[in-house]
């Protein structure tokens, strides 16, 4: 490597020399395919949005119906991610730490929201919670309405987000070191103290990551929500639905504006995830 001839030759190379062939072909194909399918269409969206300008985007976001839809999407996604955080931790804990009949089967079913098409989830949740459904009918006796209200959106987003929390937290729970628990107990901590002060803190980054993933997914979710939401403008209309409505009205600028704002929110969530993981690697040595 110290040979000046080699250094001179390598200096102009993009990739280090080796016997493995096919870099030009596979790398070139990767870039072209990525560019054509993903980057160019997304760049077109940004180009359209830049045509609107910042003032145009603000004007679209300030439209009462758009503002209401963005608020609904943001706050209900946040609430659903909180519910998923709480129950996702319990589910992950029970599936990882305890053994009980049907544990493996339930564990496999946690991925159901990833595998079940969103339209199917949507119509089955709507059927369950509608006033004559399995859950809707008993709740209607107490004057509780879920389907075709904001609560319906919450139920659908809880469904969609659950696996993100469970699957992010599960590996960390199974890697918790038993020596730390023993040390904590021998030093006189009660079980509750051990769980709260020794076992839960290392789970925090994974919980936060799972929360952010569930939240980001919920912001963009469409299929599972629209059937159960009722889609009443200003009340239970989500931002992705409003994009579809605007497109049907040939209001491409309006649709582009909402889409740009939603992209900004999900990229912010993605950035948060990366920051949390970088921090976690420094603090705990794992993601």
């Amino acid at each position: 490597m110290t040979s000046p001839v080699l250094v001179g030759k390598n200096a102009r190379r993009f990739t280090a020399p080796g016997v493995i062939p096919g870099f030009g072909l596979t790398f070139g194909y990767t870039l072209i395919y990525l560019g054509l399918i993903v980057l160019f269409p997304l760049a077109t969206l940004i180009w359209w949005a830049s045509g609107l300008g910042l003032s145009g985007l603000c004007a679209i976001a300030a439209e009462p119906r758009v503002a209401a839809a963005l608020r609904t999407t943001f706050f209900i996604s946040f609430a659903a991610a909180i519910v998923d955080l709480f129950f996702g931790l319990i589910v992950a804990w029970a599936l990882t730490r305890y053994d009980f009949a049907g544990r493996r089967l339930l564990d496999a079913f946690v991925d159901l929201p990833f595998a079940l098409p969103t339209a199917v989830a949507g119509i089955s949740l709507a059927a369950l919670y509608s006033p004559n459904g399995w859950f809707g009918a008993p709740l209607a006796d107490y004057d509780i309405k879920i389907a075709f209200t904001r609560w319906g959106i919450l139920v659908a987003l809880i469904f969609i987000g659950l696996p993100f929390v469970v699957r992010t937290v599960q590996p960390i729970i199974s890697e918790l070191e038993v020596e730390l628990e023993e040390a904590s107990a021998t030093l006189g901590a009660g079980r509750a103290q051990t769980v709260l002060h020794v076992m839960l803190p290392p789970l925090a980054p994974a919980l936060l990551t799972g929360f952010a993933l569930a939240f980001a997914r919920s912001i963009g979710e469409y299929g599972s929500v629209i059937f159960i939401a009722g889609n009443i403008a200003y009340v239970s209309e989500i931002a992705p639905l409003l994009i579809v409505v605007k497109l049907e009205q040939y209001d491409v600028a309006g649709a582009t504006g909402i889409a740009t704002i939603m992209l900004a929110i999900s990229f912010a969530a993605l950035l948060l995830i990366n920051l949390v993981q970088a921090w976690s690697r420094r603090r705990f040595g794992h993601v």
Binding site: V38, G220, L247, M262, F267, L270
Partner: peptide, 22 residues
């Protein structure tokens, strides 16, 4: 960048193609 489509709402994914080919 390869992971990017997972962070894009399905509706926005449809929209970008409308903006290109619509």
């Amino acid at each position: 960048l390869i992971d990017l489509p997972f962070s894009v709402s399905p509706v926005v994914a449809g929209l970008v193609y409308v903006l290109v080919f619509g």
